[in-house]
Each structure stands twice: as structure tokens, then as C-alpha cells.
Write a protein that binds this DNA or RNA. Structure first.
Lengths: 202, 202
DNA sequence: TATTTTTGTGAGCAATCGTTCAACTACGGA
DNA sequence: TCCGTAGTTGAACGATTGCTCACAAAAATA
């Protein structure tokens, strides 16, 4: 063996993630990263190869911990799926004491031209959210809370777009009341997209 | 007087705008800007004070030319307002030959923590889009294409969020078919948000 | 204990960053 | 024609960037 690693990789990734969420990839310098993680460049480059490597690890950790956790808590587990979708949206608006940390998927998608190799990670996270919506919508339909001919795939994609847009508006500093009404609109729009299996009133 | 300015300010702002849309504020170095605009640093700093000044001028130009033009062509002028809303969305997806240049408002909102002084410009542009939606919705309602008790303000905010989300997904490289179905969802969701003036079927 | 192996430390590298400025060029008015 | 003014040019500045590497420290093996 040899000397043992003095730092916890999960903690380091958590603080790096927080930094990238706030400042973006380009906005976070290695001096910032050193300060945030407490790691010196040597250890950093030994473990993560370079800044890109650390970012990818942070993005994976974001998908694995933050996204997955939020999807599970708000979209997969709640007994009332529509209430879960609502809380999924509202929890993105009410970020608590510290200012909005931003969604690493949204930020990275926008920075994509300077970070093309991060695309798979972004896709993965977005797909997880979309899948969560689809699950919640399916359960809502089975419970009778949504029309039986609801187009689940399209509605899930619709909610994903609306959610990403909401995050942009949060970052833009829009008043919270306006953002909450977007959430109301998201819920109200569920059920408007039907499968054209049987045309009732054209 | 003195020597005449050899370059056209509109052209310079257009190329700077294009660069910032692609690469973002931090991603566009002054060497990139020199190459894109053809200006040397001296002229740049004489006219725009610094990089921030150029960015603000480019953001203002974006609001003034791109946003305003798009709002007018798709939302204010068309005889069929709902078809206009549809084309407003689809034209953001089909960006033509060159890859998606991105929306400077979306990108800047996401970069906001490194550019807090750009917030007013972002607000201004977003308000212009939202206002365009509100105008189109009002005309649609007057034409009988939307319910008479449509909640216009909330629906406009809803469409704005959906539009910004669509732009994020475009940047994320989502397949165009999925994006077009988001557009369908946007149109279908119009009319789901009613003013609670008269409760018909609770 | 001596040796090998792994990790931590941080000074310092070349490259690039945003920015400045002194020399130079072109125009209008005297 | 000469001068004052406004604009152009591009070399170069100090600061910061991402990153390297020689060395010190600690654990496992002998």
C-alpha cells in the first residue's frame, strides 16, 4: 500500500459541485477550487487528471446524488403524484437561505459549446428527470387523477422543458410569485396532451 | 473634428453579439473579440470602455434588434396569433445551417452570478417576450381562438418559461422531434389557465 | 529498522487573460 | 500649410490561468 488518502472524495465532490453550480465551469478557477475543496493542485491532478476530469466527476455526482434524490423524493415516492410534481417545481424556486445554486444540468447545457464532452452527462440527468415525470404521470393516470388517454411521453418532455425554463427564470431573478404561477400552469397543463387514438371532437 | 471612424458600430456589435451568443461572456476572450470584430484593443477600449461595456452594448443590441424583431414578426404582426406563437417556438428550434447560436438572454441569466450587472438587460428582454405573448394571447382571445376567461398574464409567463426551457434543451442537443412536441404542448396548454372569475365546474 | 509505495505540499512554469499607452495616421479649420 | 483633434495600431504590461514536478510525509512490506 502506502500513505492513506487524507480527504473524503464525496466531500470534495460536494464542494466542487457547489462551486460549479454557482460559478459555472469557466467561472470557477483552480484557485477557487483549491479553496472550496481544501485540496492542493497535486492531489487534485493525481485523482482527477485535470479540471475537466473534476468537472465530469462533479457532474456525475450531481446526477447521482442531487438529481436522483430529487426525482425519487418528489416524483417516484409520493402517494399523490401530482402533488409530487408540484413540490418538484416549488422546491426549485424556494432555495432556502443561500441564493439559488443553479442546476448543473441547465448551466452545463448553456455552456455546452465550451464543454462539448459534457453532453452525455447532461443527457443522462435530463433523461432521469423526464423519466421521473413519466412515472409520476403514469401513476396519476392509473389513479384517475389524469385523463386515461394522456400522452405521457410528450407531457413528460413538456414538463422537462418547463422545469428547465423555470430554472432559467429563477437565475434571472424573476419575482417568486411569477415563478409560482408558472408552477400552477405546469399542473394545469397536464391533461391537455391526449393520445390521438380515438378522435372524439375534431 | 479629426479622423473618421473606419468601422461600422452596428456591424461590430453584430459580430460581438454572435460571439457572445456562442461562447458566453467568460468564454469569449478579447483575442476572440478582436478576431470576430476586426477591431484592435485600442479602438475597442476607446469606444466601449472595457469588455463589460462591449457586452452590455451587445446585450442591448440583442434586445433591440433580435428580440424585438422576433417578437414583432411572430407575436405582434401575424393575423393568426396562435400560428404566430407556434412559429415563434419552431423558429428557435430550426436555426438553419449554422449550429444554434443560443439566446443571449438565456445564457446571460445562467451566467448571472459572474455578471450581476447584466440583470436589467436580461429583465428587459424577457419582459419584451412576455409582453409579445400577452399581446398575441389577447388577440387570440378577441378572435375567439382562446377561451374568453383566459388568464393572459399567467399564460404569458407560462409560455416564457416554456420558451426558455426549450432553448436550454436545444443547447443540450435534444432531438428536434422531441422539441417540436414541446411546441405542440405549448399550444395545447393555452386555454388551460382560466381566470377564476366564475367557477363553472369545481 | 530499512525499503518501497502512495499521497500531500506548494513553489513555480508557460500561456493566456483583460487592459494600457505611446507612436502613428487621417481629417477639419486656421 | 500647419496645427489641433479624433481614431488606429499593436507591442507590451501585470495578473491570473490551468497545470507540473521535485520533495516531504506517512503507511505497508521486508
Amino acid at each position: 500500500m502506502g500513505r492513506r488518502q487524507l480527504w473524503d472524495q464525496d466531500e470534495v465532490l460536494a464542494s466542487a459541485m457547489r462551486l460549479f453550480r454557482h460559478r459555472g465551469y469557466l467561472g470557477a478557477s483552480l484557485r477557487d477550487i483549491e479553496e472550496a475543496t481544501g485540496l492542493h493542485p497535486g492531489s487534485l491532478y493525481r485523482t482527477f487528471r485535470n479540471k475537466d476530469g473534476l468537472f465530469h466527476a462533479a457532474l456525475d455526482a450531481y446526477n447521482e446524488r442531487v438529481v436522483r434524490h430529487r426525482v425519487r423524493v418528489h416524483l417516484l415516492e409520493p402517494a399523490d403524484p401530482l402533488a409530487g410534481i408540484r413540490s418538484f417545481f416549488t422546491s426549485a424556486i424556494e432555495t432556502g437561505a443561500e441564493p439559488d445554486p443553479g442546476c448543473l444540468l441547465t448551466n452545463t447545457a448553456v455552456e455546452s459549446f465550451t464543454l462539448p464532452e459534457a453532453a452525455p452527462g447532461v443527457h443522462h440527468g435530463l433523461a432521469a428527470i423526464e423519466g421521473g415525470f413519466a412515472d409520476a404521470l403514469t401513476r396519476a393516470r392509473n389513479r384517475g387523477d389524469a385523463p386515461p388517454d394522456l400522452d405521457i411521453a410528450t407531457t413528460a418532455a413538456h414538463l422537462l422543458a418547463l422545469y428547465q425554463g423555470l430554472l432559467v427564470l429563477v437565475r434571472a431573478g424573476r419575482p417568486r410569485t411569477a415563478l409560482h404561477s408558472v408552477t400552477d400552469g405546469a399542473l394545469a397543463s397536464i391533461g391537455t396532451l391526449r393520445n390521438p387514438r380515438k378522435q372524439d371532437d375534431p
